[in-house]
Amino acid sequence: MIQTENLSKQFQTTQAVDRLTIDVKQGEVFGFLGPNGAGKTTTVRMLCSLIGPSAGSAVVNGFIVGKQDRQIRQSVGILTETPGLYDNLSAEYNLKIFANLYEVTDPAGQVEKYLRMLGLWERRQDEAGTFSKGMKQKLAIARALLHEPSILFLDEPTAGLDPESARLVRDFIGELSSEGRTIFLCTHNLDEADRLCDRIAVFKTRLLVMDTPDRLRAQVFGRRVVMHLANASELLAAQVRVIPNVKEVQVIDNKLVINVDDPEHNNPEIIRTLVNAGAEIQFVGELRRSLEDVYLQLVRNAD
């Protein structure tokens, strides 16, 4: 659905995007993470044909960026960083404008559908300026969906929202994904990315890594197994260290934290060894690093 090949953007002397190559598949929720000023919004703008690339190429929904811009704009939906609503017009009229601009066949029907879906139908006659931040964001999401785009670009969809509104928006993104839409999600909210995204790209002017959240964790920190023992000791840890494929073993309180590449394959042998050595195993689990840890590690490395 979205393919870029060495996509670059330079503003005078500033390189905003440097040789970005990605391939986002249909129905995928693709997280695009990066610090402020990393070039995320510039990338989204290029992919939505709002600005042209300086070098490289991009194909969105089968249309070439820079050559078939109107077709791209017709086939994608975008939620911009700020809702950008017409504050002195009603919520309904705000959507009607865009339904007409996208040449939606049943503007009134589509407007009603999304106002109802996002819980704004009762407030449809109210001016958008009277809405809370969360309601404005929901209205902006509805605007991006009126023409039923197969690709949706969401730039910080939950930024500045209270937890309840953020959750509503997140749930809605999940629903959109289950409908088979491709979602390109720019976010700072790493927990959100972890929960929603099939794959994640960490970006800072150039692509740092791109993979599933779990594989990213494994890439950056490796996989760790934690075993709670009634009698954890250095002696038991030493027994585990000699097992092939075990990289590192730490004793922390009554736990052994074991770094292994393939726990599914190595855990039975580790457990056998420990039991034979007299260990009393209480619990076994995987120690999951947060995506935040992964992200911070990657961005620090890039600096």
């Binding site: 939505c48 709002l50 911009t80 865009f98 601009l101």
Partner: peptide, 8 residues
């Protein structure tokens, strides 16, 4: 302006 320019 940006949402407006993002339309066809």
């Amino acid at each position: 302006l940006e949402p407006l320019l993002a339309t066809p």
